[in-house]
Simulated scan of single mutants.
Amino acid sequence: MKSETKEELTKELATKADIAEVRTEIEKVRADLSAEVEKVRAEVKVLEVRFTAELRLIKLWLIILTVLVAVFNRDALGLILEIIRLLK
Rank of each mutant, 00 (worst) to 15 (best):
K45R: 08
E7L: 13
L79R: 11
K2H: 09
T5R: 13
V29Y: 04
E7G: 03
V29K: 07
K16H: 06
L13G: 00
K2G: 15
V71M: 13
W61M: 15
E7R: 12
L79A: 12
I19W: 00
E12D: 12
A14M: 13
R41G: 02
L62S: 11
V44T: 03
R56P: 01
I80K: 03
K6H: 12
E21G: 03
A31Y: 01
T15K: 00
M1S: 06
N73I: 08
V69W: 05
K59M: 05
G78H: 08
T10S: 08
A76G: 03
E82R: 10
W61T: 12
E82S: 13
R41Y: 01
S3N: 07
K2M: 09
F72E: 10
K16Y: 08
I26V: 10
E36H: 09
K28L: 03
A70C: 14
V71N: 15
R56D: 14
L86T: 12
A31V: 06
D32A: 03
I83E: 14
K39D: 11
I83C: 13
R23V: 04
K16Q: 09
E82W: 06
T24C: 12
T24W: 05
L79K: 15
R41N: 06
E36C: 05
E82D: 05
E12P: 00
I26Q: 01
R74Q: 15
L77E: 10
I80M: 04
L86R: 15
E4Y: 12
E82A: 08
I83A: 09
M1T: 04
L33I: 07
D18K: 00
F72T: 06
A53L: 15
L57K: 15
K28P: 02
R30K: 14
A20L: 08
V49M: 03
E12F: 09
I83V: 14
L65M: 11
A20D: 08
I84W: 07
R85Y: 10
K16D: 04
I83T: 13
L68V: 05
L60I: 04
V37Y: 04
V44Q: 00
W61V: 13
D32E: 10
L47T: 05
L57C: 10
A42H: 01
R56K: 14
L60A: 15
